[in-house]
Design a binder for these strands. Structure first.
Length: 926
RNA sequence: AGGCGGGUAGCUCAGCGGCAGAGCGGCGGCCUUACAAGCCGUUGGUCGCAGGUUCGAUCCCUGUCCCGCCUACCA
């Protein structure tokens, strides 16, 4: 540690070292001490799947959450970032089954108990990977408290919730039309189904009418006609009036099918205006069936094969059956042709297979009574959603919520605590892992429900089940409700809404004060990251660096390298200029980048170039500190800003104050883009570009008191700035902070130091105004030098003419600063109106006439062109302002200060024109 | 179809009643002893279109055209 800083910032060297330091010192641990008087900050981590590995979405989420966590810890809160992992029912089961398949074994071969053992083994092997990756990201979660949703305690909470809701009548079992995943062999909730538009066909065929004639219907799923129990027409459709009350004959099975009139289902302008009705396999038809009391004819088994109701088609797989039905209709002369048709195909999120609406007995949560208070909590502001616009989406969803199917035909998960009695048929629902007798008749011939609960049911209990609920533990008392919940907007309904409902129901108050939502991380062109498009980026490749070959193989597994490369480069145009791969940008650069995107936009187009830019920023911080370390040894750093008399020091402390206040506001408002932008600008644009440059002449000079003051201010401001930056870039700030002089009572880690807030610096309007004038004057000289192509090292005489006494004094006072930054050995201050030096370029800034003596180096034509350009600009401004001032009603209706300000602006531009006119005359003489 | 959001510099996006901003890029000049992962300067905009409210509109209102996302879908 005592060794010197390397010339450039190398993230790899420092990250692992400091994470170990934090862990060893218990920096992340929340306090259980009942006497701890600090306010609490609790943030439940959106639990990743145990099957998962870290992707960009996690990186985004984790970064924002860790910033919130670290910032609050530094604000003096007793902070709990509650980590954990989710057993992820379907996802995990699918992964392990796939593994078994390699050995040609199915889960049924193993049996339920053995299979579950296998899943646990797998979890023990691979379940910690995502946690390790989260630690690479620097997460300051309290890992000691990590919870897995299948832990014994958590499982007990899940059963308890089920049992209570059941006895309150909020959970019921019913036969309903549900979405069925034929591959995973389970029911899915409507949220686990994604519909995409795909090409299909609209197939038309005729039903013979009983008394002769026919009626033509159209369908995209011809095989479902085996389960038809009606043909519907619109009651007012004149084409079909003669068929009212008639029947058609099913061509394949012995069945008379009624023709019904239904104005809701039938749109007479679409297709033939006649619709086949299959109540057991279509949601709309199901409703129609209820209206007309139609027969429910199931034709599919759980694997998607036609069952006995399908007559001669029985046993055929559903897509085979489709072809067979079409062929058979054709043979009977009933086919009436087909046309191409775009339609929405519902697919399982997990297995990708087309899901089938099927009738099935399942467990449901009655959502309406739970949703109402969850809606009210947001409407009354007890829970706030940020960014605000999501409130409407939440309300819309909560008011249109459907009952929630919570049973799943899986083995991996929380088994439903219901036992059915063979003797009396009663269902015993109790919080137990095993049951020996029916609670009603005492029979021991009972059987537990085979199904498990939807994963979202268990994760809906997260904010309180992690703290020991249903027991009234001290942890539950202390850490419920949580403060914030941060997550992607895509699981607002899946998860957030569920936690709101469950939290309010079981705990009596909403689980969070704020719900903070971030957007989807997409590729540079705005497309969703997917292994089909080949635009997935592993965050660790950005942190550790990686050849594009490696990156691309992960993005599009199994594809030829050049094809994958082409797709990848197309998705990330900015990589074109990046050579053979990503350099090791480090965790800090990635985190800072992710924070810099506005949470309001719906997409976050990840740009590797931008990450590179923020690695440059880290390098800048590194080098600025390296510079400062050469001067700050022995500095006295106190808890508050040191006294300052020099203008540059007063100015820096004023800017520090502003930057820290703005950054804190950004954090408070969940506007990390504002916070990072302000800190970036302060550090680079103010501290480095101006302040450090201005300290150079001071440190090179021989005014001991000025040196001492500047040393103290530099050390103080840098130390404070690192603290302000720490939540965003924890590693580099810790590394540098440890090397700087700091207050005597500083903690073992910057992570435990205070976040700078109002009062860290000092408001000093005079210093800011005066420094701004200096900056403008220096800028004017630099512009002239640059446009005249004066070599940056060349010393050129400068004359400043100013009448205003205060400003004149400031310029005189900071002569040394001006000379350094203007690169002049000969600076003279004069009153306006003196003679015109030969070969002078003239400009104007902050009320000062700026003359740069360029005789011999000047290009008269270029000089004139520049002046003309500036004159034109100034004249345009004058015209605009004159028009504004002269506009009807402006003077008497606009606020006086606005009028005054406008007049002053106009004066300024007029003055500028006067000087530029002179400059033009002067240029003529060159 | 309904709901929500967006159209601002070449690109990605802030700003949302009172002189149009940032980062990246472009252009010109510099290896100036913290940093070439850098320094200095500079160029980019009828703020989607049309009306309205206002002394004043990128910002508020109405209409309109595009583009996303979500929900529900026509068998």
């Amino acid at each position: 540690m005592a060794d010197e800083l390397t010339k450039g910032f190398e993230p790899k060297d420092i990250e692992a070292r400091w994470y170990a330091h934090w862990q060893a010192n218990g920096v992340f641990a929340a306090s259980d001490d009942p006497n701890d008087a600090r306010p609490r900050y609790v943030l439940p981590m959106p639990l990743p799947n145990v099957t998962g590995s870290l992707h960009m979405g996690h990186a985004m989420m984790c970064t924002l959450e860790d910033v919130l966590t670290r910032a609050h810890r530094m604000m003096g809160f007793n902070t709990l970032y509650q980590p954990g992992t989710d057993h992820a029912g379907i996802a995990t089961q699918v992964v392990v089954e796939r593994q078994l398949k390699r050995d040609n074994v199915s889960r049924h071969d193993l049996g339920r108990d053995t299979f579950i053992e296998r899943v646990w083994e797998w979890k023990a092997e691979c379940g910690s990977r995502i946690v390790e990756q989260q630690q690479v990201l620097g997460l300051s979660a309290d890992w000691q408290r990590s919870v897995f949703t299948m832990d014994a305690g958590y499982s007990r909470a899940v059963r308890e919730a089920f049992v209570r809701l059941y006895h309150e009548g909020l959970i019921y079992r019913a036969k309903r039309l549900i979405y069925w995943d034929c591959a995973a062999q389970t029911v899915l909730s409507n949220l686990e189904v994604d519909s995409e538009e795909e090409n299909g066909e609209l197939f038309e065929f005729a039903y013979p009418v009983e008394d002769g004639g026919e009626i033509v219907v159209a369908t995209t799923r011809p095989e479902t006609m085996l389960g038809d129990s009606a043909v519907a027409i619109h009651p007012d459709d004149p084409r079909y009036t003669h068929l009212h009350g008639k029947f058609v004959v099913h061509p394949f099975v012995e069945r008379r099918i009624p023709i019904v009139c239904d104005p809701i289902l039938v749109d007479p302008t679409f297709g033939t205006g006649a619709v086949k009705v299959t109540p057991a396999h279509d949601f709309n038809d199901f409703e129609t069936g209820k209206r007309h009391n139609l027969e429910l004819i199931e034709i599919l088994d759980s694997e998607g094969r036609i069952n006995d109701h399908g007559g001669s088609f029985a046993g055929l797989e559903r897509f085979e059956a489709r072809k067979a039905v079409k062929r058979a209709l054709d043979e009977k002369g009933l086919a009436r042709g087909a046309k191409g048709h775009r339609l929405m195909i519902p697919r399982s999120q997990r297995t990708g297979t087309v899901v089938e609406p099927m009738l099935s007995t399942q467990w449901f949560v009655k959502t309406e009574p739970l949703a109402k208070p969850a809606l009210e909590a947001v409407q009354t502001g007890k829970t706030v959603i940020l960014p605000e616009e999501w409130t409407k989406t939440y309300e819309h969803w909560m008011t249109n919520i459907l009952d929630w199917c919570i049973s799943r035909q899986l083995w991996w998960g929380h088994r439903i605590p219901a036992w059915y009695c063979d003797a009396c048929g009663h269902a015993t629902v109790v919080n137990a892992e095993a049951l020996s007798a029916c609670e009603k008749c005492g029979s021991t011939s009972i059987k537990q429900d085979e199904d498990v609960l939807d994963t979202w049911f268990s994760s809906g209990l997260w904010p309180f089940a992690t703290q020991g609920w249903p027991d009234k533990t001290p942890a539950l008392e202390r850490f419920y409700p949580a403060s914030d919940l941060e997550t992607g907007y895509d699981i607002l309904f899946f998860w957030v809404a569920r936690m709101m409902m469950m939290g309010i129901h079981f705990m009596g108050e909403p689980p969070f004060k704020r719900i903070l939502l971030h957007s989807l991380v997409v590729d540079e062109t705005g497309k969703k990251m997917s292994k089909v498009i080949g635009n997935v980026i592993d965050p660790l490749d950005l942190i550790n660096g990686s050849d594009f070959e490696n990156v691309v193989q992960k993005a599009l597994p199994g594809a030829p390298l050049d094809e994958a490369m082409k797709k990848f480069k197309k998705a990330y145009p900015s990589t074109a200029s990046m050579g053979a791969g990503f350099e090791a940008y480090g965790t800090d650069a990635l985190r800072f980048t992710l924070c810099s995107y506005s949470p309001q936009s719906k997409r976050i187009p990840l740009s590797p170039k931008k990450i590179e830019g923020y690695r440059h920023f880290c390098n800048k911080i590194w080098n600025a500190t390296r510079f400062a370390l050469g001067y700050v040894e022995g500095a006295t750093v106190g808890a508050s800003a040191p006294a300052a008399t020099l203008r540059i020091n007063r100015w820096l402390l004023a800017r520090l104050e502003d930057a820290c206040v703005e950054a804190k506001k950004g954090i408070d408002d969940f506007r990390f883009d504002d916070a990072t932008a302000r800190l970036y600008h302060f550090f680079w644009g103010e501290l480095c570009d101006w302040y450090l440059e201005l300290t150079k002449p001071v440190f090179a000079g021989d005014d001991a008191e000025a040196k001492r003051e500047t040393r103290d201010v530099l050390a103080y401001a840098l130390e404070a700035t690192l603290r302000a930056l720490h939540p965003f870039i924890p590693f580099i700030t810790e590394e540098l902070w440890q090397r700087l002089p700091k207050p005597a009572s500083s903690p073992v880690s910057i992570a435990l130091a205070r976040l700078p807030e109002a009062g860290v610096g000092r408001i000093d309007a005079d210093a800011v105004r005066e420094m701004t004038a200096l900056q403008e004057v220096i800028g004017a000289v630099r512009t002239i030098r640059s446009e005249r192509e004066v070599h940056p090292a060349a010393q050129v005489p400068v004359v400043l003419r100013v009448s205003e006494p205060t400003l004149r004094a400031v310029l005189e006072d900071d002569r040394r600063s001006l000379e350094t930054l203007m690169k002049t050995s000969s600076l003279s201050l004069e009153l306006p109106g003196g003679s015109r030096p030969e070969g002078a370029a003239l400009s104007h800034a902050a009320g000062v006439e700026v003359l740069v003596l360029l005789k011999g180096i000047v290009d008269p034509a270029g000089e004139k062109a520049r002046i003309e350009r500036e004159l034109k600009k100034a004249q345009k401004n004058v015209e605009a302002l004159e028009k504004k001032l002269g506009a009807k009603g402006f003077a008497d209706r606009a606020p006086p200060e606005v009028v005054k300000e406008t007049e002053e602006q106009l004066q300024g531009y007029r003055e500028r024109i006067r000087i530029l006119d002179e400059a033009r005359a002067l240029a003529e003489e060159l």
